[in-house]
Amino acid sequence: MTLHQAPHQALHEALRQALAACRTLVVEGPDGIGRGALITQLARQGFLVRRASGPLHHVDPTQPYRELLAAPGRLAVDASLVHELVYGPLRRGRSRVTWIQALDFAQAVAERDGALLHATGETDDAEAVEGFRRALRTLGQHIPVITLDARDVGLPVREAARTPTGNQVRPQAN
């Protein structure tokens, strides 16, 4: 299955445009939202896939990502900088990535004809969903952000957990 052939699902128009217009797509999203499957599909669309190896650099966490952006051609980056902005405070009380570093990274992606690809879907972590929404709204002032529901392009999404009240948590569109 390719992005253009997702069964019984219409490909999100913004993603279709991004595939045609962007040289660089940086994939971000909460845990449990088919980012790996999306990266695989982007590879099938001709994007060179790159991931930073190892933990974030302790002095300059954006350094490995800037090095990845130096690759020629169409590039899909499975990033974790926004992930760190969101989950760092939730899990450790602080982020190892500063907003200035994140904005510099966003600018570098934009200069490479890129966009942030924000994969969403049902998840039981409402704090993370809201954290991604805030972070990407801020970064979206400096770089295009394409938000798509993973289910709309046939990507796997972990089954939504129930909140204590029994209601499903479903993120709102940006």
Rank of each mutant, 00 (worst) to 15 (best):
R51W: 08
D31F: 10
L148P: 00
T40G: 05
R158Y: 06
L139M: 03
R51C: 01
A126V: 15
G131W: 04
L155T: 07
L3A: 03
R91A: 15
P7A: 02
L90H: 06
P164Q: 15
Y65V: 09
L15C: 00
V157N: 03
A37H: 06
E84A: 03
V129H: 13
Q63N: 11
Q168H: 13
V49A: 14
A135L: 01
L19D: 05
T2C: 04
P156S: 03
E130V: 13
L81P: 00
D31M: 12
R16Q: 05
R50A: 13
P30S: 14
L3F: 10
V157K: 09
E13N: 07
E67W: 07
R44M: 01
D125F: 09
L11D: 00
G88P: 03
H12D: 05
P171K: 12
R112E: 14
A21H: 05
V77L: 08
V49Y: 11
V157F: 07
Q172H: 15
P144K: 13
D60R: 09
Q45H: 13
D113S: 15
I100D: 09
N167F: 13
V27K: 11
R35D: 01
H57I: 00
T2S: 11
Q141L: 13
H118W: 15
N174C: 03
I100T: 14
L15N: 05
L11H: 01
Q45Y: 08
L155I: 07
T123N: 12
Q5K: 00
Q17Y: 01
R66V: 05
E122H: 15
G131Y: 05
A43Q: 07
A126H: 15
G121N: 07
I100S: 08
T24P: 12
A79Y: 07
R74P: 08
L85R: 10
G29F: 03
A20Y: 09
A14Q: 10
V153T: 07
D124E: 07
L136S: 09
R51S: 02
L11Y: 02
G114L: 14
